[in-house]
Design a protein around this nucleic acid. Sequence first.
DNA 1: CCAACGATATACT
DNA 2: GTATATCGTTGGT
Length: 210
Amino acid sequence: MEELQNFLKIHSTVEVAQFLVGMYLEHETAKGKLGGYIVDCEAYLGPDDQAAHSYGMRQTPRLKAMYQEAGTIYLYTMHTHLILNIITETAGIPQGVMIRALQPVAGIKQMEENRGKTGVALSNGPGKLVQALGITRDLYGHSIFTSPLRLVTEKRKQPKKIQSLARIGIPNKDKWTEMPLRFVAAGNPYITNIRKSQISTDYGWQKEQH
DNA sequence: CCAACGATATACT
DNA sequence: GTATATCGTTGGT
């Protein structure tokens, strides 16, 4: 965990976003541990990024967590859905990574119950994975290092290829609309809007090394 | 009041 | 398979 904390300190938001592809995300709930691999995420680059909530160093009550230290959990609601972000820089620099999709590994049965769906619909979108993992607003502002919701570096998988794409859902933001700040594990079926022909049988992971 | 870092159902080639 | 319409809540001018 200290290792991860250090990683956040010395790397840029974009580098962290790329590192989070393949990272194991786990939520310890009353109904057991729910977790899986992050396969799709987006970087939001604070003051300059027109698509970021914190564009122009905007300060509002809900943005409070964005100005806290790296590892802080930033949650916001969007059209009835809760969206999960992880803050990536030191306090005062409002940048973060939005978690877009997860390949479920542990507690899949519980996730199906939480979602009322099965298969890729469990977690192939930001609001979906939050619901699948049972994440709630009271995690707002807590740390990814010390809360029931945490990143497990030891279980991280290595993607064969990280693909850079334009971010989703941010039209009319000049160059920021097109900038390749979205990173996915190429070939993984849980990626948002992936085409069937793009899915690979190994789900986009490197082979385990022995 | 209205836009928003979505999700879903429904309607189409 | 892709496209659109509608749902719905909260935060910020």
